[in-house]
Write a protein that binds this DNA or RNA. Sequence first.
DNA 1: CGACGGGACGC
DNA 2: CGACGGGACGC
Length: 465
Amino acid sequence: MEEYPNKQATENLDDPPNSRLFVVTSRSITEDELREGFSAFGDIQGVWVVKDKQTKESKGICYVKFAKSSQACLAMEEMHGKVLMEGTKPCKVFIAQSRSSTRHRDVEDEELTRIFVMIPKTFSEEDLKDTFKEYGDIEYCVIIKNKFTGESKGLGYVRYYKPSQAAIAIENCDKTYRAILAEPRTKATVTEDYSAGAPRGDYMGGGDSMNQYAFPMADPGNYQVMDYRSNDFTRCLMMSTRAALTQEQIFALFDIIPGMEYCELQRDAYGMSKGHALIRYSNLGSAVYAKEKLNGFEYPPGNRLVVNFVDDGDDRSSPVGRMAMQFVATQMMSAVWNGPSTSQVMKPPGFSPVSPMSRVQTDVNLPPLKKLAPPDSKTKERLFVVFSPSPLPPDVLEDVFCRFGSLIEVHLVPGRKVGYMKYADKQCADEAMAALHGRVVNGVKMKVMLADPPREESHKRPRTY
DNA sequence: CGACGGGACGC
DNA sequence: CGACGGGACGC
């Protein structure tokens, strides 16, 4: 069949676009070890470890070329923050800049998750979503319309949660849609700085005030008895993320597990936290539990957090100490997985690529799931919800807000941090509001209020039916 | 003869 | 802090 033209065409050039990874890892990692670590995600066309010209030693920088962008994106999403070889630092994984690019900035998920498509002018945003949801979870769809007449220009944007989903859509959707990655919106991109006005530096937590959350699983305090020699072993976790998270977001997330006494964002040279955060708990049990619950958790949705143990500092290079730490950690893990108090099995022993954390983590004692009201139910009450710092995904919201009964629909306002919950029964809505106002779900705080009546736009074009 | 290029967001 | 080698191109 088709022959690969030569090495230049397949490996050097970024063809197809965004199919090459830039990997920052330990200098001890070899080409074979990289190949081994990344081969599960697709067809590797080349691995190149950048070495010092004189000493021939690795500079800790590598490139991994895949046949497809979707493969590279998936590998990035799954491998960022992972420890490639026992005892080495977690790697960082980005889509490589194209070789012709002079820019020296990381390629952001922002640039990899939104596609631009050409669609029939008759398409509604619902149609657009229905067409492209088969390739991945969609954050939102927008159709470009004439500002005055409201008629579609036959162009649309689809934002996915993950780069791999956008890449799969581009690779696999019907060619008539002419799907390409959308250029990022120019100018004032809404990247609020939530750290404004916040105390700088270390967060010395440890107060009990925020630690009274109800948990569906075992109380981590149960493992406190096993916290022997805790000074010799780790209570410290390292969290890796590719999305820019703030100190406050990370703090709020890890503070869900009782016993957090320290949480420090390690900002990179550009001031964003694409690197790591260090979190310490007062006891080993809490640290094990936090790793168990938060490793693999998507926050914000689409951004998989990676949580690893890290030793307490002094003996970082000792293989013996590392082995011992690993051993204890493994024991603790199986205690968590197999222990008597763990009635509901979260996951089997071993490493699983699936998210180990249940979809909803909250300080609310939620009633069980309830069925949605039929879509054609009459709306008797709407709740207006404000999210901070960022909106929760619709499936999570449905999971949470349906539990008081009669929920018809979750509606998020695209591009805003607000949403509406439609209920067929007023009392159900009131109960949801009472239970959920001011509460935190997956690290996102919610204000839940009665919605103002919808504004009637009298001079809007009539419905099409 | 004979069939496909075009394409950008009220922050 | 973390950004780009080695190899050698048709009849």
